[in-house]
């Protein structure tokens, strides 16, 4: 089992459900195939989220809930293959909620 080191940011108020911490250093364990974005999202929901009750705030239908903006190294994840993106060591993943007031 190896692992990959990543930086994850929760912005737009999303940090509230991740221990009120905006920047997380994540070591994502994996075996075999290099991990994908979907593996990270599952890991965040299962192991990093403070309270399982908040699951629905982050996840819908197995992926990030619509209305949460995802950036991979500051690029819109829609340009990077979304869930299918293959993670690399040192990647910065940003999750920003747009679901509330401005």
């Amino acid at each position: 089992m190896s692992s990959i080191k990543l930086k994850v940011e929760f912005l737009g108020g999303l940090d509230a459900i991740f221990n009120h911490v905006r920047e997380h250093k994540i070591s994502l364990p994996y075996s075999g195939e290099p991990p994908k974005m979907s593996d990270l999202i599952r890991h965040l929901a299962d192991n990093v989220m403070t309270d399982k009750k908040d699951h629905h705030i982050f996840i819908e239908d197995g992926s990030v809930r619509p209305g949460i903006l995802v950036l991979i190294n500051d690029t819109d994840w829609e340009l990077e293959g979304e869930d299918e993106y293959e993670l690399e060591a040192g990647d910065v993943l940003t999750f920003t909620s747009t679901l509330h007031g401005g």
Partner: peptide, 21 residues
């Protein structure tokens, strides 16, 4: 679009506040 507003604020590093009421 909200998405573009959020991206604009993010890329321009504008100082805004975001916490749920």
């Amino acid at each position: 679009y909200e998405k573009e507003i959020v991206l604009y604020a993010h890329y321009k590093k504008l100082d805004y506040f975001s916490t749920e009421c």
